[in-house]
Design a protein around this nucleic acid. Structure first.
Length: 676
DNA sequence: CTGGGGATGGGGCCC
DNA sequence: AGGGCCCCATCCCCA
């Protein structure tokens, strides 16, 4: 009908003036009230609330994040809270507030207000083209937008790290020099480049490249920014003061979580650069470096989008993870062993990092800091192996090969474990004593009917068994979205995340100290109460923490003959044999009983094993009366201990030593320890 | 300088 | 999923 046509025509031509502006206004109004906000953005210690749709419509990077998560963690090396505040304001208003003004509004300490350069960096990092353009425009208007390596302008600002960049680096103007301008103070914390070791870290702060500086390049060249010292506290909602944010991983429903900003789909993107860490930066920053691009996340999927960010730069693969526990070196915290850097293993002279405490970087010597030009034309680099490729397609194919390789390896490892188990060789990891748990007809068999096919450990319920079996997987299913470290249990990963986020929900009422775990607080509270419930059965020393008692007992075990039975139950030296301090004064049967009692106490501490502890005590009371029985009981005691799953690693030693003593192939051993 | 203890952080893993 | 505990490592202090 003619009316319809007319109506259609009118619809095509109608436009409500200011509609978009009004819409934005409403959205911003809602944001300020938190109305319908469905995402929380964590930047360092500040929380921001926003709408997923708005973020997704404004930033390609944020879009990629909000798809999977309700809680986003932004790299505060790239985006400070103050800067993100400006960015968020821009997203919702289209206006870029003056940095100083915003800083004043945010009550930021003088001199720490975000510079335009920092906003540009953040905009580039977050892939907000409009904001990038706006920043550049403003910088150019003020004559502050200058190319770092082309014509100086650094004015004593940031020196190029290592040596003058060439190739890709030199071809691309970066904006560090802008920080030297009076109106754009360097980002906190240092107003001037530091000297000494700090300078290395300082110089490495790399801002995103000018998105327009390379033909077809995505805006997101993301340098391997290392850890910047934290910004001063900002008057945003602090995490520790706020209600606990939703678990970012719970909400992601198994998604690998945020990944580094993908490149623009319409052209080749610049690769992420993975730089070697520097000493003295701390593990946190290093982990951030490793997390850049957290390559393994995508590869875990093994799905259609695995390994490579859609249309973006290749994210690479995580190197094959290594087993926990078995290979942990003495490095700090045992962290980062998953990714052992070849440069570290070879002791790179330019990286005199102490063992541990820093990134165990990707084993790619080409990625070493200061050698960016070594890729030549092969700009698409596989993170784990360091191979460069001239095109994303070729890299994708290469990455696929990695995936297949890992899968094949997984299969082989699994087969090897099974074969080893079948051959009675035990698993390639973990204590050999684990096998006793599966002793047919043993007590452990009754208590723990669900046995692991790979290592013969047994469990009370199938869910726990499934959980345990994950420890045998080559691929750890739960990667940290910040540092890329992978975990076998989601809970461990979320707990790990708390350390990144500085979430310490458990506060001590007495001193205000905060902890990430309830148990830590419980431990800590004993300091204030003076309670020392853990007593050394050898010397009578008392301890507030169980682990310190255990540590102490090892000291007893170190000396002389005590070592043999010192392994017993992992709790101390052989009773009856004086320790190095001469404090061990127990007679032999009493000593065995003490061991049994300690074991029982250990079991009792594990709430679930109270009954077993009582049984053990009942069985061992007669030790006091008959040394012979005591001696003969060593082996079953050790076996029993191991069967009950007490300290599996030690259980291996227990069984070994117990067997040695009880079977008595070495008569001298028995005589030596026999009181008669 | 060394060793031991106190205290803390982080990961593994079981319940 | 969260709690709890074990283990390792580390730092600091003190004798």
């Amino acid at each position: 009908p003619a009316g319809d046509c007319a109506g259609q025509t009118m619809l095509d031509t109608m436009e409500a003036p200011g509609h978009s502006r009004q819409l934005l206004l409403q959205l911003n109004n809602q944001r300020t009230k938190g109305f319908l906000c469905d995402v929380i953005i964590v930047v360092q210690n500040a929380l921001f609330r926003a709408h997923k749709n708005v973020l997704a419509a404004s930033s390609a990077y944020l879009k990629s994040l909000v798809v999977h998560d309700n809680l986003l963690n932004l790299d505060h090396d790239m985006v400070s809270p103050a800067v993100f505040r400006l960015v968020l304001d821009f997203i919702y208003t289209g206006r870029l507030t003056d940095g100083a003004e915003a800083a004043a509004a945010a009550a930021v300490a003088p001199g720490t207000e975000p510079s335009l350069g920092a906003v540009l960096a953040a905009a580039s990092y977050l892939q907000i083209p409009d904001l990038v353009a706006l920043c550049k425009k403003r910088l150019k208007r003020h004559g502050k937008y200058c190319h770092l390596r082309g014509g100086g302008g650094g004015g004593g600002g940031y020196a190029p790290y290592g040596r003058p960049g060439r190739g890709l680096r030199a071809a691309t103007p970066v904006i560090q020099a802008c920080y030297s301008s009076p109106a754009g103070p360097p980002p906190p914390p240092a107003a001037e480049p530091p000297s000494g070791p700090e300078a290395a870290a300082f110089d490495r702060r790399e801002l995103p490249r000018d998105p327009d500086s390379l033909p077809g390049a995505g805006p997101l060249y993301k340098g391997a920014t290392l850890a910047l010292p934290p910004l001063p506290p900002l008057p945003f909602q602090k995490l520790e003061e706020a209600a606990p944010p939703p678990d970012p991983f719970r909400s992601s429903s198994g998604s690998p979580g945020p990944e580094p900003p993908p490149g623009r789909p319409d052209g080749p993107s610049l690769l992420y650069r993975w730089m070697k860490h520097e000493p003295g930066l701390g593990s946190y920053g290093d982990e951030l470096v490793r997390g850049r691009g957290s390559p393994g996340e995508r590869c875990e999927d093994r799905g259609g989008d695995a390994a490579v960010s859609p249309g973006g730069p290749p994210l690479g693969l995580a190197p094959p993870p290594r087993y926990p526990g078995s290979l942990d070196g003495p490095g700090a915290g045992g962290d980062g062993d998953d990714y052992k850097s070849s440069s570290e293993e070879t002791g790179s002279s330019e990286d005199p990092s102490p063992p541990g405490g820093h990134l165990e970087g990707y084993p790619c010597p080409h990625l070493a800091y200061g050698e960016p030009e070594s890729f030549g034309d092969n700009l698409y680099v596989c993170i784990p192996c360091g191979k460069g490729f001239p095109s994303s397609e070729q890299l994708n194919a290469h990455v696929e090969a990695h995936v297949e390789e890992e899968e094949a390896l997984y299969g082989r490892a699994e087969a090897a474990e099974v074969a080893a188990g079948a051959a009675g060789l035990g698993p390639p990891f973990g204590g050999s004593g684990d096998k006793v748990a599966g002793t047919p007809g043993g007590l452990g068999e009754l208590l723990r009917p669900y046995r692991c096919a790979s290592c013969d450990k047994s469990y009370k319920d199938p869910a726990t068994l499934r959980q345990h079996e994950k420890t045998h997987w080559l691929t750890r299913p739960y990667p940290c979205t910040i540092c890329g470290k992978k975990f076998t249990q989601r809970g461990t990963m979320t707990r790990h995340m708390r350390s990144h986020l500085g979430l310490k929900p458990f506060a001590c009422d007495a001193c205000g100290m905060r902890f990430t775990r309830q148990y830590r607080l419980t431990e800590h509270m004993r300091i204030h109460s003076g309670e020392k419930p853990y007593e050394c059965q050898v010397c009578g020393g008392k301890f507030a923490q169980q682990r310190n008692l255990i540590s102490h007992m090892k000291m007893h075990a170190v000396g002389g003959a005590a070592g043999a039975a010192g392994a017993l139950a992992g709790l101390g030296g052989l009773p009856g044999v004086p320790g190095p301090d001469g404090k061990g004064k127990l007679d032999f049967p009493e000593g065995v009983f003490a061991v049994a009692r300690l074991t029982a106490e250990q079991l009792s501490l594990k709430q679930q094993d109270k009954a077993a502890a009582a049984e053990l005590l009942a069985q061992t009371t007669h030790f006091l009366h008959d040394p012979k029985v005591a001696l003969e009981s060593l082996y079953p005691l050790a076996k029993f201990t191991a069967e009950l799953g007490l300290s599996p690693d030690k259980a291996a030693e227990v069984l070994s030593q117990g067997a040695h003593l009880a079977a008595g192939p070495d008569g001298r051993t028995i005589d030596r320890f026999s009181p008669t």
